[in-house]
Simulated assay, not measured.
Amino acid sequence: MSGTKRTFEELVAEAESVSVEGWDFSWLEGRATEERPSWGYARSMGERMGRAEAALDLQTGGGEILAAVPRLPTLTVATESWPPNIAKASALLRPRGVAVVVNHTGASAGVEGVPQEPLPFADDLFDLVVSRHPVTTSWAEIARVLRPGGTYYSQQVGPRSVFELVEYFLGPQPLASTARDPEVARAAAEAVGLDVVSLRSERLRTEFYDIGAVIYFLRKVVWMVPGFTVAEYRTRLRELHDRIESEGPFLAHTTRFLIEARKPGA
Rank of each mutant, 00 (worst) to 15 (best):
T4F: 08
F8G: 05
V20R: 04
D24E: 11
L28P: 04
E29M: 06
G30S: 05
R36I: 11
P37K: 01
Y41R: 00
R43Y: 04
M45A: 15
G50N: 07
G50W: 08
A54M: 03
D57I: 06
T60G: 00
G63I: 00
L66R: 03
A67Y: 09
L72G: 01
L75A: 14
T79G: 10
E80W: 04
P84D: 02
P84K: 08
K88R: 15
S90W: 03
A91R: 14
P95N: 06
R96D: 03
A99G: 03
A99H: 09
V100N: 04
V100I: 04
A107C: 10
S108I: 07
A109V: 15
G110L: 09
V114P: 04
P118V: 13
L119P: 11
L119K: 14
P120T: 08
F121I: 04
D124H: 15
D127N: 06
D127I: 06
V129H: 03
S131K: 00
P134V: 09
T137Y: 12
R144H: 12
R144C: 07
G150N: 10
G150T: 09
Y153K: 00
Y153E: 08
Y153S: 03
S154G: 07
S161W: 01
E164Y: 07
L165E: 07
V166I: 12
F169W: 07
G171D: 04
G171V: 01
R180V: 08
D181W: 10
V184M: 05
A185M: 02
A188H: 11
A189T: 05
L194V: 11
R203G: 07
R205A: 15
R205H: 14
R205Y: 11
Y209C: 08
Y209T: 00
D210G: 10
G212Q: 01
M224P: 00
M224V: 02
F228K: 09
Y233S: 01
Y233F: 13
D242M: 10
S246I: 04
A252K: 06
T255W: 07
F257I: 01
I259R: 01
K263Q: 10
P264F: 12
